[in-house]
Design a protein around this nucleic acid. Sequence first.
DNA 1: GTCTATACGTGGATAGAC
DNA 2: GTCTATCCACGTATAGAC
Lengths: 202, 202
Amino acid sequence: MPDTDPAATRSRVLDVSERLVQTRGYNGFSYGDVARELGLTRAALHYHFAGKAELGQALIERYATRFAAALARLDATAPDAAAKLRGYVGLYADVLAADRMCLCGMLAAEHRTLPEPLRRAVCDFFTANTVWLRRVLEEGCADGSLRCPGTAEATASVVLGTLEGAMLITRLDGDLARFTATADQLLDGLAAVPDRAAPAHA
Amino acid sequence: MPDTDPAATRSRVLDVSERLVQTRGYNGFSYGDVARELGLTRAALHYHFAGKAELGQALIERYATRFAAALARLDATAPDAAAKLRGYVGLYADVLAADRMCLCGMLAAEHRTLPEPLRRAVCDFFTANTVWLRRVLEEGCADGSLRCPGTAEATASVVLGTLEGAMLITRLDGDLARFTATADQLLDGLAAVPDRAAPAHA
DNA sequence: GTCTATACGTGGATAGAC
DNA sequence: GTCTATCCACGTATAGAC
C-alpha cells in the first residue's frame, strides 16, 4: 500500500480536527489550520470531507460512538453502580487532562451557529448520556452502592451539568486538581455511606 | 441633544453585542452583525470601539460590574445565606430565561482563541464568583441555614460548575424547567434540613 | 489522492469626505 | 458621528492538472 492511504489520512484529519474543535471550538478552527498541521492543502481536505459541516458531522459521530463504547465497557467491567459512576467521572478527567473540553460541551455552547444536523447530534449525545446516568443511578439505589436524593432524572442532570461545567471552568487555568476535588465532592454526595450524610446531631 | 448621542449609541452597541456573544459566542458574531441590527455601518462602530477586542473588553467589564452589583444587592437584602444562594441561582435562571448563556461561561469555552486581556477578565470573573460563593457557604454554616459537605471551596466549585453546566446543556432545547429541577436539587443538597439528609436508618 | 489556481464572500480595519 | 470607499487577509469551496 502507498503512503497515501485514504483511510489513514481521513483518520488523521479527524484526529487533528477533533483536537482543534475541543480546544478552540467549531467557529475557532478552519480547514487551513488542519491542512497546515498535516502538511496538506485545503483542497486536499475537500476530497475527504465535502465541507466543514460534513467534517463536523463525522467528528461528532466518531466521538459519540467512542463514548458509547466506553460506557458499554464500564457496564461490562465495573463491579457496581458506584464504580460505573466513578469510571464515568474518569472519562471526563481524561479529556481535561489532555487540556481539552468535552467535544459536545464545546459544541453545545456554539449550538446556535451550527449546521442543523450537527445541532441534532449534540442533543442526541446528551440525551444518551442522561439516559445512561439515570439507569446507573437507579441501579445504584437498587444494589445499595448509591443513594439518590430526589429523582434519578434530576440527579442525572446534576451529574452531567456539574462535570461539564467544572470542565468548562477549570480548563481556564488548567487546574486538574480543582476538577478532581469538585468531582469527588459530587461523588461523595451520591455515595451510600449513611454516616457521612448527617454529621450535625450526634 | 441630537438623536445621535454618543453615549446612547455606545450603550446600544454593547446591548446588541452582549446578546450576540451570549447566544453565538465571541467567534460567532461580527461587527457586521451588530451594525446591521443597529442600522449603522461597520466603520461607525470603529468610532465607538477601536476593534473587536476592545468591544469585548468593554462587554465583559460592564457584565462583571453588573454581576457584582447584583451580588451586593443579595448581600444587602437576603435574610440569610440560604436566601443569598437562592438569589444567586435566580440570576442564572434569568439569563437562561432570556435564552442566553452566561457571558463568561460562553467566553470560557472559547478562551483559547480570545485576546489575552479578555481571557484574564474571564478568569477574574469566575474567581470573584467562587470567592463570593465560598463566603456565603461559610456564612450559611455559621447562621445554620446551610450545611456544607466537604470544604467550602470545593462546594463553591460544585455550585458554580453545576449552574454553568446546566445552563450549557439545558439551553440546547430551551428547557427552563429542567434547569430549575437541576438547580433545586443542588440547593436541596445544601439545605440545612437535618431530616432530609439521612432517610435510610429511621 | 493531492496538487495549483482560482473564485467569491466575509471579517476586521483604515482614510478621508461630510 | 456617520458615511463611502477601499484595503487586505482569511475562509470555504470548485475546476482541472498530475
